[in-house]
Write a protein that binds this DNA or RNA. Structure first.
Length: 107
DNA sequence: GAAGTGACTCCTC
DNA sequence: CGAGGAGCCACTT
């Protein structure tokens, strides 16, 4: 049975979505960690591209994804909306950035 | 199949 | 601490 390593296109999305769905409220995850956890180390951009295509009806906590600097990527007006959602979950932004050491979700 | 793109990350100045 | 550049990976066209 010769078979391909894996169907990346659709599989990657499924895995990343699953990981993202596991992120609890009040916590955040970086693009790099999200991709790595999904099985794509160093593919931080992949997570970003995926979220960009993700519809709002996705029910996924896309707002819990921030960059490695503890800052919100995603240009306005998305940034304001994401920050608002995170603040509602108890995340505090200091100087426009949050404390990854405190909110970064790690299994 | 090749080239372009991006909600990134790390290193250096 | 902030800005800039190079590197990386997978998806899209």
């Amino acid at each position: 049975m010769g078979k391909k390593p894996q169907n990346r296109d659709n599989d990657a999305i499924s895995r990343i979505c699953r990981v993202l769905a596991e992120v609890p409220p009040g916590r955040v995850i970086t693009y790099g960690d999200l991709a790595e956890m999904a099985g794509f180390p160093r593919a931080a951009r992949l997570a970003g591209q995926l979220l960009r295509r993700l519809p709002e009806e996705s029910s996924l906590p896309w707002h819990r994804v921030v960059n490695a600097s503890g800052r919100i990527s995603l240009p306005e007006p998305g940034a304001g909306q994401q920050r608002e959602r995170l603040e509602r979950e108890g995340v505090v932004f200091i100087g426009g950035r949050l404390d990854l050491g405190q909110y970064r979700w790690q299994p």
